[in-house]
């Protein structure tokens, strides 16, 4: 029993990290029709910059805030100078974001060296709680809480604020929103910034969770995030959180029982979704 609970918590924590990456990806895709292949790079930048700040200042909170700010800045730069010039041309967009991914992850190696970097959680998140025979590792619970908080916050922004209304309307029909006198470019930038910030947050949270970070991890998680985005439905925010949890759980259970097949199972899931419901498992558009 406690094994199952442990695996579930593991899966939920991984799922939340994937969610942080996939949420931005799916929102950006829904609104701007851009599939950002550089998102994994932003994730890795969040991890490196956040952990660097954490190691310099000794405060994990400062590291998290630093990572989010790095994500914001990189998001703005990416949107303004890399993606904006090629809006509307799908092939060029896909190609250019992959090029950016390349540059971002190589830059990491230039600045912080090509080797792995160790990371551990701060003291107050070390250790675990024991509830009878069940052991809950604090840091994993922390990741799950942060993920839920971000989900609730984004949901609140989307449903209750004016900018959220504009974003939802933009997903449905960009031209109409624009013709109603709203500067959609600014909304694009806002969403891109938020997506990049969430990806960077996911990155910095991953560091102490897995113990080491390396430049290739952006690509690894980006692949999982793509699977999630396909399963949840491109542009579907709620779908992405459910799919992320599904992928996280299947990953953690498979990693325990048949470790060699864990990626294959997720791929199979994605292939089945592509055959039966290319619009995603969870509901129609929106």
């Amino acid at each position: 029993m406690d094994l199952i609970i442990n695996l579930t918590i593991n899966g939920l924590a991984t799922g939340m990290l994937i969610f942080l990456l996939a949420a931005g990806l799916t929102l950006i895709f829904g609104l701007m029709d851009v599939l950002n292949f550089a998102h994994g790079g932003l994730f890795a930048w969040g991890a490196y910059s956040g952990l660097w700040i954490y190691s310099q200042t000794g405060s994990f909170l400062a590291g998290i805030i630093g990572a989010i700010l790095t994500g914001f800045i990189l998001g703005i730069i990416t949107e303004r100078w890399i993606i904006k010039p090629v809006y509307g041309n799908h092939v060029q967009q896909i190609l250019i974001t992959l090029g950016l991914m390349l540059v971002l992850s190589e830059m990491l190696k230039v600045i912080w060296g090509p080797n792995q970097i160790m990371a551990s959680p701060p003291d107050y998140l070390k250790g675990s709680w024991e509830l009878g025979s069940i052991i809950i590792i604090k840091y994993r619970a922390f990741i799950i809480l942060v993920g839920l908080f971000i989900f609730a916050a984004v949901q609140f922004v989307l449903k209750r604020t004016k900018i959220g209304l504009v974003v939802r309307a933009g997903v449905m029909n960009k031209e109409m929103v624009q013709s109603l006198g709203i500067n959609i470019q600014k909304v694009f930038m806002f969403v891109f910034m938020m997506g990049a910030g969430m990806a960077a947050l996911g990155g910095v949270l991953l560091g102490p969770y897995s113990g080491v970070i390396h430049a290739g991890m952006g690509m690894e998680f980006a692949i999982l995030a793509f699977i999630v985005v396909v399963i949840g439905g491109m542009g579907n925010f709620k779908g992405s959180v459910l799919a992320a949890i599904l992928v996280g759980l299947s990953g953690s259970f498979m990693a325990y029982y048949v470790p060699d097949l864990s990626l294959a199972v997720n791929m199979l899931l994605m292939a089945i979704v592509l055959i039966i419901r290319p619009q995603g498992l969870f509901g129609a558009k929106g």
Binding site: F29, L35, F37, H90, V91, I94, M219, E220, I223, F226, I227, V229, V230, M234, D260, L263, A264, M267, M270, A271, L274, I275, P278
Partner: peptide, 28 residues
């Protein structure tokens, strides 16, 4: 067959993840 009837992103994504799978296969 799986992806070319959909938007161009899907082919890029599926090939990217599938080649990741082959890499894992070759390692394992």
């Amino acid at each position: 067959l799986l992806t070319l009837r959909l938007k161009s992103h899907f082919y890029a994504m599926l090939t990217l993840s599938l080649s990741g799978l082959f890499l894992v296969l070759a390692e394992k």
